[in-house]
Simulated assay, not measured.
Amino acid sequence: MKLYDVVELREPRPSEQLSAGAVGSVVDVFDGSPPVYEVEFADTDGRTVAMVTLRADQVVQRDGHI
């Protein structure tokens, strides 16, 4: 994955009030083994709801836009 890719959560994140299937955008990539991604989740008005650091196995990359 790379910056600005659209991703979908595979599993709920109750501590961030995000359900499985929530859609977000990759806003930072941390190289490492394995790499991790900072993903921003926003509401329909574009306000940030959560910023979460996730592994690749915790999200599914989606085609298209949020």
Rank of each mutant, 00 (worst) to 15 (best):
M1Y: 14
K2S: 14
K2F: 11
K2M: 13
L3G: 06
L3I: 13
L3N: 06
L3K: 04
L3P: 03
L3V: 09
Y4E: 12
Y4R: 15
Y4L: 14
Y4C: 15
Y4I: 07
D5F: 09
V6N: 08
V6K: 05
V6A: 09
V6R: 09
V7H: 00
V7P: 00
E8A: 10
E8K: 07
E8T: 09
L9F: 03
L9I: 03
L9Y: 02
L9C: 02
L9R: 00
E11G: 05
E11V: 09
P12I: 05
P12W: 07
R13I: 15
S15C: 08
S15T: 09
S15Q: 13
S15E: 14
E16F: 12
Q17C: 12
Q17V: 13
Q17K: 12
Q17N: 14
Q17F: 14
L18F: 03
S19H: 11
S19N: 13
S19A: 15
G21R: 00
G21Y: 02
G21A: 06
A22P: 04
A22H: 00
A22K: 01
V23M: 13
V23D: 05
V23L: 12
G24Q: 04
G24M: 04
G24C: 11
S25Q: 12
V26W: 01
V27D: 06
D28H: 07
D28F: 09
D28Y: 04
D28R: 10
D28L: 11
V29Y: 01
V29F: 01
V29R: 03
F30W: 13
F30R: 05
G32Q: 05
S33P: 08
P34Y: 02
P34N: 04
P35T: 04
P35Y: 02
V36S: 06
V36H: 04
Y37A: 03
Y37R: 09
Y37S: 06
Y37T: 09
Y37G: 03
Y37D: 03
V39F: 01
V39N: 01
V39K: 00
E40M: 11
E40Q: 14
E40C: 12
E40D: 14
F41A: 00
F41V: 00
A42F: 04
A42M: 09
A42I: 08
D43A: 04
D43L: 08
D45N: 12
G46V: 06
G46Y: 01
G46A: 09
T48M: 06
T48V: 15
V49N: 02
V49W: 05
V49E: 13
A50V: 01
A50H: 02
A50T: 02
M51W: 09
T53E: 12
T53W: 06
T53H: 12
T53K: 11
T53P: 04
L54I: 07
L54G: 01
R55S: 13
R55Q: 10
R55F: 10
R55D: 14
A56L: 10
A56R: 07
A56G: 06
A56N: 08
A56S: 10
D57V: 12
Q58A: 12
V59D: 00
V59N: 00
V60W: 13
V60L: 09
Q61T: 14
Q61A: 15
Q61S: 11
R62S: 07
R62L: 15
R62K: 15
R62D: 04
D63F: 15
G64D: 06
H65D: 15
H65M: 14
H65C: 14
I66E: 07
